[in-house]
């Protein structure tokens, strides 16, 4: 996945899209006040400087689907594991809730179900049947909408063809109003995501930790770069 910070406006369409797609529960006021809100993707906001010279920066942070994910080796039950396609999978059924993976994750993109999720009836009718609902005591996280990836692959296989670049979009990418997010196969050098990931604006979050994140951020441009070019 590539996220262009020059396009991202921090509107959080991705956040709500993720809730809708992945059956993420709202925890309510009390639990939110206890820092237990679950947002698989969040938009981090940073201020720099003081009035009137204030700069605001937005940065959406989903699970970085690290190539060398700190969350994976620490899980004693293989609940968090590396899929063949290179995703950091989370098998909810295997999870016993040590929360070790969440501590090991440098990006804080893992979320714990402190209680059983509640959907006041009939809000439960909104639940996506393609995504399991998680119970109390287990970790959950961004999956890059694995159900959409699988559906795309099954569709392509049924049509006896390869998956087309851009055909599969996680919910966040699909919703992004500024088209700041691009999803694609990084092992295919020709994909749009691979092309953007080679951009000279490309950086990776906390790259120095050696986690090999698979989310590439394209740095903000500056108008003056444009002027000098």
């Amino acid at each position: 996945m590539v996220i262009d910070l020059d396009r991202c406006t921090g509107c959080e369409a991705c956040v709500v899209a993720c809730h809708a797609e992945n059956n993420i529960a709202t925890v309510g006021e009390d639990q939110a006040a206890r820092a237990r809100a679950m947002h698989w993707i969040r938009v981090e906001r940073y201020y720099e400087g003081e009035f009137p010279n204030v700069k605001t920066k937005f940065m959406p942070v989903p699970c970085q689907q690290c190539g060398a994910a700190p969350c994976e080796p620490v899980c004693p039950t293989f609940a968090s594991y590396h899929t063949i396609e290179g995703l950091n999978g989370q098998v909810y059924n295997r999870c016993i809730g040590t929360r070790y993976c969440a501590n090991a994750c440098p990006y804080n993109t893992r979320f714990f179900n402190f209680y059983n999720p509640v959907w006041d009836k009939p809000l439960d009718l909104q639940l996506n049947p393609d995504v399991s609902v998680r119970s109390e005591g287990i970790m959950e996280k961004c999956t890059f909408c694995v159900q959409r990836i699988k559906a795309g692959e099954v569709q392509a296989a049924a049509e006896k063809r390869l998956v087309k670049d851009g055909e599969i979009q996680p919910a966040c990418v699909q919703s992004c109003p500024t088209q700041a997010m691009v999803f694609g196969d990084l092992s295919d050098p020709e994909s749009e995501a691979s092309r953007l990931a080679r951009s000279n604006r490309a950086t990776r979050l906390l790259d120095e930790l050696g986690t090999f994140p698979k989310v590439t951020y394209l740095q903000r441009g500056s108008w003056h770069d444009n002027e000098n070019a």
Binding site: Q31, R34, A35, R36, A37, G97, R99, A102, N103, N108, F111, F112, N113, F114, Y115, N116, E136, G137
Partner: peptide, 15 residues
Amino acid sequence: YAGLGVTGLNRPVFW
């Protein structure tokens, strides 16, 4: 019975 929510744990202090 109630869930780990009865503790003061939260994100990011899971332990």
